[in-house]
């Protein structure tokens, strides 16, 4: 039990993700999370504005159930499987964030400077959260998939388009981390 409560090393988490992908394929689905965002837009009436949201979303119900499970999984982890251990970050990462003015780096999953109460009730903070989400939503649909659909499912099927998408993920991630985050914070 103690082993489950400890943070899981990469060689447990990685193969476990492959298992989840297999389960979804075996159950008749596939591993692609961002498709749910499209389904949610369709349910909310997006089909009235563009044909992109005109599809039989009921066929995607299984994927929405997977999201419901993911939320429950997060709840279970927080309430029954957490031991409050700090994230074992590289000291250089911690120093870099402290230089940008971040405090208590790694003591919880998320920095309060971005996700805390004070941040989300400031204009800058709300723009960061909405803007970050907007780029994730827009980019994943434009690229036709996200980390699960391209980096895991697509690369597993040796799809060249997925490799190009993953290269894009890194171009964007490196620009944000090294050039933009030091300007934003």
């Amino acid at each position: 039990m103690d082993l489950i409560l400890e943070p899981w090393p990469w060689y447990v988490a990685g193969p476990a993700i492959a298992l989840v992908m297999f389960l979804l394929l075996y159950f008749g689905g596939n591993f692609g999370m961002s498709a749910n965002l499209r389904t949610m837009c369709a349910i909310a009436g997006g089909d009235k504005y563009t044909d992109f949201f005109k599809f039989d979303w009921k066929k995607q119900k299984w994927n929405l159930m997977f999201v419901v499970g993911a939320i429950i999984g997060g709840f279970i982890s927080a309430n029954f499987l957490a031991n409050g251990q700090a994230i074992d970050l590289n000291p250089n990462t911690i120093t870099a964030l402290e230089d940008l003015g971040f405090q208590e780096v790694g003591e919880s999953y998320l920095p309060g400077e971005i996700f805390g109460r004070e941040a989300i009730f400031s204009l800058k903070g709300i723009l960061i959260l909405i803007g970050g989400g907007l780029m994730v939503g827009f980019g994943s649909r434009y690229a036709g998939g996200c980390t699960s659909g391209h980096a895991i499912s697509g690369l597993s099927d040796l799809q060249i388009p997925s490799l190009i998408a993953v290269i894009g993920f890194f171009i964007g991630g490196l620009i944000m981390t090294h050039l933009l985050i030091p300007i934003i914070f």
């Binding site: 803007g131 780029m135 980019g139 690229a143 996200c146 290269i167 890194f170 171009i171």
Partner: peptide, 10 residues
Amino acid sequence: GGTIFGLGWA
């Protein structure tokens, strides 16, 4: 699309 996604992800 991937680059835009990466900006948001980071």
